[in-house]
Design a protein around this nucleic acid. Structure first.
Lengths: 144, 144
DNA sequence: CTCCAATAGTTAGACATCTTACTATTAAAC
DNA sequence: GTTTAATAGTAAGATGTCTAACTATTGGAG
């Protein structure tokens, strides 16, 4: 086995495990609010970026269109978001945060920030930046 | 928002996206063989480490005990592994690779290595090692 | 020795997500 | 303009995974 293949394989395992472990830790508290990771992703996206269509959301949180329908359905049932038809192009539906949804995300997000920072505190600031940089190089369609 | 919180959040997003993107790319070819990622993980684990119990496998591939039962069921149905009762401690079941399973993994694994190395080729050797190191620091129960 | 706690595995039921096929709407080609 | 292709969203069905409750087996405390 070539050396590059070997270190790539080992790094793959570490990357996937680190990602799993971090994701589990930082999303655990969502259960207290009955939210899935995807539901939180939707609320967070429209809270920070404003209302957008379902397909935009799908791209944003990397889930299939069909799945987003279910996620939005469930958030809508609980009154955290609402669907608003776009009158200019009636194919589009804008997903809008309700007051109830805004209240919720404003409770959860500060906790989330703290938990994430805590989880990354085993790395120095330089290491966190470096890790982000390497992930950006490795990923596709990455945020800046 | 504190600076450390901010860079931690951004790095979290990059880590999860990179991991998703890489995982999708390097596991795509498994569908050609009708294998799920978990099924491949089981075959690969017992191919390289020898037969082990279901609970060992669960720890190894980071899935729940209950899920491993299903994964093993499906691999067994297709004749890639078999269950062998451990006679010394009858609570344990050893999962053993069959000849058919060995043939399969010996076809898939070399392809897998190549695909992974190819996927990491946007990074230099030093960067891959560095990424692995940072992930190891960040994760829990990480391989060396 | 007996009983209790821990461990390995299984089953049932729930849920998130995926793929595929479908409808509705818009844009583009001719 | 009419037809055709592309896009947004939905519905149906399948699958992978989870939690919780259960059985079987083993080890340890008294």
């Amino acid at each position: 086995m070539s050396k590059l293949e070997e270190i790539s394989l080992k790094t793959l395992v570490k990357l996937l495990r680190a990602s799993d472990s971090v994701s589990e830790d930082v999303h655990k508290h969502l259960k207290d609010y009955g939210l899935t990771v995807s539901q939180f992703g939707v609320l967070e996206a429209i809270y920070h970026l404003g209302s957008m269509s379902q397909s935009d959301i799908a791209k944003k949180i990397l889930k299939s269109e069909a799945n987003i329908v279910t996620v939005i359905d469930n958030l809508e049932k609980r009154g955290f978001i609402k669907r608003v038809k776009n009158e200019k192009d009636r194919r589009y539906i804008n997903i809008v945060l309700t007051d109830k949804g805004k209240t919720l995300i404003e409770i959860i997000f500060p906790q989330h920030k703290k938990i994430v920072a805590e989880r990354f505190s085993c790395l120095s600031e330089e290491e966190i930046l470096l890790l982000g940089d390497l992930c950006r190089k490795l990923g596709k369609n990455m945020p800046k």
